[in-house]
Computed example of a mutant assay.
Amino acid sequence: MSKISPCLWFNGKAEEAAKLYVSLVPDSRIDTVQKNIIDGPAGKAGTVLVVEFTLAGQGFMALNGGMKMEYTHAVSFKIDCADQAEVDRLWDALLANGGKAEQCGWLRDRFGVSWQIVPSVLPKYIGGPDKAGAARAMQAMLGMVKLDIEGLRRAYEGKSAA
């Protein structure tokens, strides 16, 4: 486990969020759930205070901090996706029940956490050796909400949409 891990702040939804996240990514699990031992700002005795969990081998902590805090795009979590099916699956799951789609493969889940759902081939297209192709792929990406691998490929290769 890494010496440094992100801590996500929730208002009573830490365990729900952690369970969603670990259900989506291989090599993920809930490690520990710590309950409040006394009534306090973070909740009543017996309610969840902290959930430690692992996502794809990276440790995280979810804290029920006792008040709503807003997330910004200054911190987001990028998931590299092997193919379009994985992009689609994660996109749909993280948007479910109140998430919000944004531009260029970004979204906010129902808890307000920002995610980037990115095909692993993206650098090949927007940073490839064909500078004109990379520029076309970048322009195509800027017009996308959910990233479309075939659309990026076609743009890079200079082919019009099917």
Rank of each mutant, 00 (worst) to 15 (best):
T47H: 01
L49W: 06
V50H: 15
V50Y: 05
V50G: 00
V51T: 12
V51S: 02
E52W: 01
E52T: 14
E52Q: 13
E52N: 14
E52V: 08
F53C: 01
F53K: 10
F53M: 06
T54I: 09
L55F: 00
L55M: 09
L55C: 06
L55W: 06
A56Q: 09
A56E: 03
G57M: 00
Q58D: 05
Q58C: 11
F60N: 00
F60V: 08
F60I: 03
M61F: 02
M61A: 09
M61L: 12
A62C: 03
A62V: 00
L63S: 14
N64R: 05
N64Q: 11
N64S: 15
G65Y: 07
G65Q: 02
K68M: 10
K68Y: 03
K68L: 13
M69E: 11
M69C: 12
E70L: 08
E70R: 13
Y71W: 08
Y71S: 12
H73D: 09
H73N: 05
A74R: 01
V75I: 15
S76F: 11
F77L: 11
F77S: 08
F77P: 06
K78H: 06
K78S: 15
I79Y: 03
I79W: 04
I79K: 06
I79T: 08
I79H: 03
I79C: 06
I79Q: 10
D80V: 01
C81H: 04
C81I: 11
A82Y: 05
A82V: 13
A82P: 04
A82T: 07
D83I: 11
Q84F: 06
Q84N: 05
Q84I: 07
Q84E: 05
Q84Y: 00
A85V: 14
E86A: 04
E86P: 00
V87D: 06
V87K: 01
V87M: 04
V87Y: 02
D88H: 05
R89V: 12
R89E: 07
R89H: 01
R89S: 10
R89I: 02
L90C: 09
L90V: 13
L90G: 08
W91V: 01
W91F: 07
W91S: 00
D92R: 04
D92H: 02
D92A: 12
A93M: 09
A93G: 08
A93R: 02
A93N: 02
L94C: 08
L94K: 07
L95R: 06
L95G: 03
A96T: 05
A96W: 02
A96E: 10
A96Y: 00
A96M: 08
N97I: 01
N97P: 04
G98R: 10
G98A: 12
G99A: 07
G99Q: 11
K100I: 10
A101S: 14
A101W: 00
Q103T: 13
Q103N: 14
